[in-house]
Design a protein around this nucleic acid. Structure first.
Length: 276
DNA sequence: TGCCAGGCCGAAA
DNA sequence: TTTCGGCATGGC
């Protein structure tokens, strides 16, 4: 990994090229908004940033200290994605999927935010999920000024735990609203402990988080992958069937792979763009 | 207008 | 264990 500073921007290059569009629009996160110049604005753990890519480099409005504290981990800069991509390519379909999504990084998102956004994702579409999350942050999140704009941090569990469904009616999240409040209360009471879940193996963590109302196998696996970066989380029995319908090969070697969760996102991105 | 979205829950078979 | 209707809402 190489880091250079130029015009108050950090350029990060490594073994794999980075694509802001692929990383932010592949469906793993819902809080980065595209700007007219093609860059993206977002907030992670209360810290705002502008992110873009240039010749495969990750370009970040950050200093080196903040990069070391937050963005290096968030963008998973120490993982060799080129090697992972290459390992996918065992036939024409997987090679095409890997090449198609070669700029994706599996972000290390804040667990609480990932849990909420994937609770909201159930039986929903990405534009609407994005809208609900945006309204949630505008309603309850801390406003933060950044480059003459106001961005909103993701609200804390404590803020959500004291809300009633009526308080959140403006989100228009439908039957998902009580699930969100219940999750917040579980986090506040210590029933759900992200640090403890992070230390568990994937199956144990899945069983724990599925105790929450409104968290089934699909939401749980998205939380495990995107919130806890457990790359072996994999919802074989849900949407992957749709992928398998397009794909006649043997899925077992993917399901058993330590990078099964990463496959999930590459396949999802590839099939969504090409088959939907 | 009608279909369906990156589901989950609970009842019934 | 599997199947199925209901659930809120709104993109397309």
């Amino acid at each position: 990994m190489q880091i250079t500073m130029q015009d108050n921007q950090l350029f990060v290059t490594g073994s794999s090229r980075f694509s802001a569009r692929q990383t932010f629009t592949c469906g793993q996160c819902f809080r980065w908004t595209e700007q007219p110049d093609g860059s993206y604005l977002g907030i992670v753990r209360g810290l705002p940033a502008r992110v873009s890519d240039q010749d495969g480099a990750l370009v970040l409005s950050s200093d080196e200290q903040q990069f070391a504290q937050l963005w290096r981990g968030y963008f998973d800069c120490d993982t060799d994605y080129a090697a992972i991509c290459d390992s996918f390519a065992i036939d024409a379909f997987t090679a095409a999927a890997a090449d198609f999504g070669r700029g994706i990084r599996i972000l290390r998102q804040e667990p609480w935010e990932a849990l909420c956004t994937f609770i909201l994702s159930q039986c929903n579409n990405i534009p609407r999920i994005t809208g609900i999350v945006d309204r949630l942050c505008t309603l309850l999140g801390e406003p933060i000024s950044f480059e003459q704009q106001t961005l909103y941090a993701f609200p804390s569990p404590e803020q959500l735990a004291i809300c009633t469904p009526e308080d959140l009616a403006s989100l228009r999240a439908g039957y998902r609203t009580p699930y969100l409040i219940a999750a917040a209360q579980a986090v506040c009471s210590g029933t759900v402990d992200f640090s403890a879940l992070s230390r568990m193996d994937t199956d144990a963590a899945r069983r724990e988080i599925m105790q929450l109302r409104g968290v089934g196998r699909k939401v749980a696996d998205c939380f495990l992958l995107f919130g806890l970066h457990k790359l072996d989380a994999f919802p074989v029995d849900t949407w992957m069937k749709k992928v398998a319908a397009y794909y006649s090969g043997d899925m077992k070697q993917f399901i058993n792979s330590p990078y099964a969760g990463v496959y999930q996102q590459y396949f999802f991105f590839y099939t969504r763009e090409n088959f939907s």
